[in-house]
């Protein structure tokens, strides 16, 4: 009994992090229709920035967010302005291939700068554990889950009741009409892309304690994120968080109760089955 509780708790914590990774992608997709295959590599860029700050100035990853967040937003804005904007509106595959090119650049830029060995950036809170009855959880994971849900709620409020949020929703619903209402569509798209990458800076800092990093891990993060976004219904933030939990929990149940191979297949199999019977995702697009 305690084993299944432990697995559920673990899956919940990991899954909420997946949900946060996916929020940025869903946000960008909702206003630009762009599927960013360099998503996971930007997560790693954020993690390596934390690592660099930790080794140079002994900054705790949680503190370094104040530096990595603006940096990553600037990077995201630049990538959108110089690379993605010029080919937006062309074949979907072209945009995807371009982001794959960006993924090669980021991944190998990291490999060149930091080398091919695993790195970690330790945090003060890294080894703290909490005991909740029979379940043991690691404090960084609890922080990460709490932050994920706060960010999801914050985004929801931002989109619902602020001017910038309303213009984002307007562009999502009908870009042409939004432009006619005086909204600078290009600016909104660039801002959301920058914000989407900026979210990854936060996600990276939350992942860093306890997660070793390697430049080649990007594509895996991208694949998990894509699956969560699609499963969540692309642009529905509640759906995306829910999908993150489904994937996280099926992953942790799979590794505990099934053989290696079957356990690793389980999240993908669950994804395929849900998609077949609910092609619009868990919750339909908002």
């Amino acid at each position: 009994m305690s084993e299944i509780l432990q697995a559920l708790a673990q899956g919940f914590l990991v899954g909420s992090t997946y949900g946060m990774l996916a929020l940025g992608m869903g946000l960008v997709y909702s206003v630009s229709g762009i599927v960013n295959f360099a998503h996971g590599d930007f997560v790693l860029l954020g993690m390596y920035l934390c690592f660099a700050l930790a080794s140079a100035f002994a900054l705790d990853p949680y503190v370094s967010i104040f530096i990595t967040l603006p940096t990553m937003m600037a990077v995201g804005g630049a990538v959108y302005y110089f690379l993605i904007r010029p080919i937006a509106g062309h074949h979907l595959l072209m945009v995807i291939q371009l982001t794959l090119g960006v993924s090669l650049l980021v991944q190998n830029g990291l490999l060149m700068s930091f080398g091919g060995q695993f790195h970690r950036a330790p945090s003060m809170l890294e080894s703290k554990l909490w005991l909740l009855g029979p379940v043991v959880v690691r404090v960084p994971q609890v922080i990460s889950a709490a932050a994920s849900f706060s960010i999801a709620i914050g985004l929801f409020i931002l989109l619902r009741s602020t001017d910038i949020g309303r213009s984002i929703r307007a562009v999502h619903q009908n870009a042409r009409a939004a432009a006619l209402m005086g909204i600078d569509v290009g600016k909104v798209r660039m801002l959301t892309f920058a914000a989407g990458i900026g979210l990854l800076a936060i996600a990276a800092a939350l992942l860093v304690p306890g997660t070793p990093m390697h430049p080649s891990m990007g594509l895996r993060y991208t694949a998990i994120t894509l699956i969560v976004v699609v499963l969540g219904g692309m642009t529905n933030f509640v759906g995306i968080m829910l999908a993150g939990l489904v994937i996280g929990i099926s992953e942790s149940l799979g590794t505990i109760y099934l053989s290696d191979t079957l356990g690793m297949i389980l999240p993908y199999a669950i994804f395929v089955i849900i998609m077949l019977f609910r092609p619009q995702g868990l919750l339909k697009s908002a």
Binding site: Q97, L98, L104, L105, Q107, M112
Partner: peptide, 15 residues
């Protein structure tokens, strides 16, 4: 020369 450099250039050409 440097691990990653050739893929970096390749990615640049693709973009």
């Amino acid at each position: 020369v440097l691990p990653g450099l050739h893929y970096f250039v390749y990615g640049g050409v693709v973009v």
